[in-house]
Amino acid sequence: MKNKKTITVAVTGLNAIDSPGPGIAVIRGLKESDFFNVRIIGLAYEILEPGIYMDELVDKVYQIPVPSSGFDVMLERLKYIQGKEKIDVLIPNFDAELMTFIKLKPILNKMGIKMLIPTKEQFEERLKGELNKFGEKLGIKVPKSETVFTINELEETLDDYDYPVVIKGKFYDAYIATNIEQAKIFFYKILAKWGAPIIVQEFINGNEFNITALGDGKGNMLGAVPMRKTFLTDKGKAWAGISIDDPKLLKMANDVISKTKWAGGMEIELMKEEKTNELYLLEINPRFPAWIYLANGCGQNHPEMLVKFLMGETVDPIEEYAIGKMFIRYSYDMICDLDKYEKMSIHGEV
């Protein structure tokens, strides 16, 4: 398309590491837009997030305060950044930062920064500890789970579960424990890293499937691509995956988006029980997954669709996608000059 409109999009999640954030995959989709010429502002929490040093993808980077610094600190930083850059759209890519951005949304909107993100209620009802209620509301099977805060609560709760059992953090990390001692070790490990609560979940034996989907906030699903992970890292993250053809999965994604009126990207994690072939909802992540570029490879560029929607362009829902497309990640050593690292360390921008 000629005369592409130039816009500025800020993106978080530049941590393209072994457990990657989605930022770089989102940026790749945006840079391949047929509709927009996208200038990317990277927002980084750590100065060694690899995306900071990817000059071909990221035009300018600012360090931002971690979500625990508070609402006001983040707002001040974003005001400073917006004073220098005219950001049109911001795409948050971390679960842990999303509540801050939900609170900031009306203020950022007045500053000219648009976001397509879930509401506080939508964000909270799909929290891991609330998933049973969420499943009931939507008529979707969810493995039995309970939220615990202390080791005593964990011990009491485990009396009602058969092993193996899954021990999960509120935002990240999940481990399969085959006995109470292992469960306690995982409890403390997750508690030290992510804090309480910890979720105890029934283990479902089967194949895991994931869906990335985009909702317009009015109950319409703009696109969805299901995939199966074909290679996992030791952290359980997808290192390779393949797009699949399962209408049941797409129907479930459509149900979730239409019944919740979800706004923005989401990743649905499901388990198909081997014994019964029943689908169980494991998690809903309130953002694009790190493998979102597979959707682009399948013919659905969700980051571009999200930006088009926010910029007031017509976005027609897409149902078609290529089946049997694979993604395979790889490690790559960039050689970087020290001055960029120095600028990020001293000035917090580069």
Binding site: M227, R228, G241, S243, I244, D245, D246, K272, I323, G324
Partner: peptide, 18 residues
């Protein structure tokens, strides 16, 4: 019905990606 069979002997089940 949706199983893909290649002459090379490569069989793909698109429903579960195996």
């Amino acid at each position: 019905k949706n199983i893909a069979i290649s002459e090379s002997g490569f069989i793909f089940n698109p429903e579960i990606g195996t």
